[in-house]
Simulated scan of single mutants.
Amino acid sequence: MLYGIAVFPEKAVQDEANSWRIRHDPHYCNIAAHMTIREAEDWDETKLRLAVEQLEKTAATLSPFKVKFNRVSTFFPVTPTLYFALEDPSPVAMLHEAVCSGPLEQTLPNYVYTPHITIGRNMPPDELHDLYGNLRMKEIRLATLIDRIHLLYQTEQGGWTAYQSFQLGNG
C-alpha cells in the first residue's frame, strides 16, 4: 500500500490554496491542500510499523511552529507547477530532515526538498506563465501553525486519508 507523510495548514490557508487548486490541480479531489514531508512509497507491514515508531519519536522531540507563505512561485521548467512559497522554509526543512532519518531515510532523492503548497500542476506552459505572471504580483500573507504530522495512505479510489496523526511536542 502507498503511504506518505504530510502536514496540513489551517483552514484559512487551505481555503486560499483550494480557490486555485480547484481549477489548476488535478489532485484537488484526492487530497486537501498540504505540504508533503515525505513522498509516497509502497510499504509492507514491517516498514509501516517502523515508520510509526519513527514518527512517534520525531513528533515527541519537536515543538509546534508557525510558518508564513509570502509569494507564489513555480518549479518551471523542471515541472509545470505553481505553489505558495514559504517566507522561511527552514523549520519545515528541519521537520523533513528529522522525519526522513533512520528507517525513513530516503536514498538519493530525485530533487532538492522545497516545502510548499501546490496550487497548480500539469499546466500547459502558456497557462502556467499567464497565471504565474498574475499571481507573482499578488500580495500573499498567509500563516499557519504546524502542530502535527500525518501519516497518510492512498485508498483504492486514489484519494489520500490519514492512517495516524502525531502531535508535535507530545513527548
Rank of each mutant, 00 (worst) to 15 (best):
L2E: 11
G4E: 01
I5S: 04
I5T: 05
A6H: 09
V7H: 03
P9Y: 05
K11I: 09
A12S: 14
Q14W: 07
D15K: 14
E16K: 10
A17N: 08
A17S: 09
N18Y: 13
W20K: 14
R21Y: 12
R23A: 13
H24K: 10
P26G: 06
P26M: 04
Y28Q: 07
Y28H: 15
N30K: 15
I31P: 12
A32T: 12
A33P: 15
H34A: 06
T36M: 09
T36D: 06
I37N: 14
E39L: 13
E41M: 13
E41F: 13
D44P: 11
D44E: 06
K47P: 00
L48A: 13
L48G: 08
R49E: 15
R49W: 12
R49A: 15
A51H: 10
A51W: 09
V52D: 11
E53Q: 08
E53S: 07
E56G: 08
A60F: 04
S63I: 04
P64K: 13
P64Q: 12
K66P: 11
V67L: 13
K68W: 06
K68V: 13
K68H: 10
F69I: 02
F69Q: 07
N70C: 07
R71K: 13
V72D: 05
V72A: 05
V72L: 09
T74L: 10
F76P: 10
F76Y: 15
V78T: 03
L82W: 03
Y83H: 11
Y83N: 05
A85F: 00
S90H: 01
V92C: 02
M94K: 08
H96V: 00
E97S: 10
V99D: 01
V99M: 01
C100P: 03
E105Q: 10
T107H: 03
L108S: 14
P109L: 11
V112N: 05
Y113E: 06
Y113S: 10
Y113Q: 07
I117F: 04
I117N: 05
I119S: 03
I119H: 04
I119W: 02
N122S: 05
M123G: 05
P124G: 01
P125Y: 01
D126V: 12
L128G: 01
N134I: 02
N134L: 08
N134W: 00
R136E: 07
R136C: 05
M137V: 08
K138Q: 14
E139T: 08
I140W: 06
R141G: 11
R141E: 11
L142N: 01
A143V: 10
T144H: 06
L145A: 06
L145C: 05
I149D: 02
I149W: 09
L152T: 10
Q154A: 10
T155N: 14
Q157S: 15
G159H: 10
W160F: 14
A162Y: 05
A162K: 12
S165Q: 15
F166P: 08
F166K: 14
G169Q: 02
N170F: 06
N170V: 11
G171F: 02
